[in-house]
Design a protein around this nucleic acid. Structure first.
Lengths: 210, 210
DNA sequence: TATACAATAGCATGTTTTTGTTATTTGCTG
DNA sequence: CAGCAAATAACAAAAACATGCTATTGTATA
């Protein structure tokens, strides 16, 4: 695998993980440079400056209780030569479905070890998608037996409600019409057979959907 | 600081963090050796074998949704020359209080960076307790000013909302007037400085009040 | 290709929640 | 005992939510 012209970027609001993982990646001597970021602003500023250089982004799913996935599109928009590897501590139906929906080049659970990183870099280096064994197994068991009641989009929007956002606030966050949010919301409420957002959240929590 | 005779042990069920943090610690060349563990059994087996050697344990607070603190006593029992540094991704009243109660030699939030580790090792090397600035600040603000945000009655009623009940349904359940429920609800919302029930529930959940 | 369904969006109507304001009773504490 | 906070309760107006209905676009699949 040749990545000497590529810049590795580690994005995690837990600086301790970012710094540590950086040490691990640096030791591999596969990348031209390794940078760590804990805040979105610094990161996008860096992207704009270094737009032509190919980058390999290691992105933690959780950023201060918000999901980091919108950053993937932002990053791909700013730099066409972007490889995205999502790292998640949490493995549950919602998280996994959300992440898969963004089609990252790599998807790794934090319970994976060093060897998984090597394997992942090797596979994505060939231009293929890599999903770590832990997630693979999860998809095989959970997904087949328990068909998810909600779609990926619905689950994504459900996250905002779980964080306490209103319809209007969610519409702002997602750049969608509030009518659309209402539509998704009512669809979920119908599926769950409930008739308020608090009931829906209780329902979702009981099924570990959020 | 002299720790060349000490063995560093990293315990985290997230192997990716353990392996990464290990790379960081190894680079410091402060310890005789660095070992990582993700399971309790292997760890205690190792402890029994290496009982006389002084160890420095970096312990992640969360192990598969359970707290790892009982391991501290186990470790101290098996090896008198144990230095314990607890690392926590979560910083909330319950977690912080629990950890402090175990009197670890060091206590570091995962949002801290590399320099914090250096500072911590320096301080605990002198035999003093180190608590990282993030936790210090948390203790200073949250703990002193906010003893407990909600009354027992409010918390009781909050449970019904968490289960998805509406104002009217909660009034029925508690045999109270719905005006009373509204009053309790608004009191809590005022205390939490939010303005909807979903926000209140998110607030309460973040503080592990429900 | 026809069908189905997800995602998007809109409107109208009735219900629930939120908020401003006020008030009584009860129990604890200085 | 006086004062204060908690628990209880009420009314009205404004804001947000729920629901019945419709419609367009895109994607996937029988």
């Amino acid at each position: 695998m040749e990545r000497k012209n590529t810049i590795a970027i580690i994005f995690d609001d837990h600086s301790l993980f970012a710094d540590s993982f950086s040490a691990l990646i640096e030791r591999l001597e596969l990348f031209q440079a390794v940078h760590t970021f804990t805040h979105e602003k610094e990161f996008t500023r860096f992207l704009v400056k270094n737009s032509p250089a190919p980058i390999c982004l290691f992105l933690d799913y959780y950023l201060k209780d918000k999901n980091a996935l919108p950053l993937i599109n932002e990053c791909r928009r700013l730099n066409r030569h972007t490889t995205v590897i999502v790292i998640s501590a949490v493995v549950n139906p919602v998280t996994v479905t959300n992440i898969i929906a963004y089609r990252p080049d790599g998807f790794i659970s934090k319970v994976s070890g060093f060897s998984t990183i090597l394997e992942c870099l090797s596979v994505v280096g060939r231009g293929e998608q890599y999903i770590c064994p832990v997630i693979q197994e999860f998809l095989a068991t959970k997904n087949s037996t328990n068909p998810l009641p909600f779609t990926a989009r619905e689950l994504e929007i459900l996250q905002y409600f779980a964080q306490g956002l209103s319809i209007a606030q969610t519409a702002d966050q997602t750049h969608l019409s509030k009518h659309t949010i209402v539509a998704h919301r009512r669809k979920m409420m119908a599926k769950a057979n409930v008739n308020s957002i608090t009931e829906l959240l209780a329902y979702a929590r009981n099924r570990e959907l959020i």
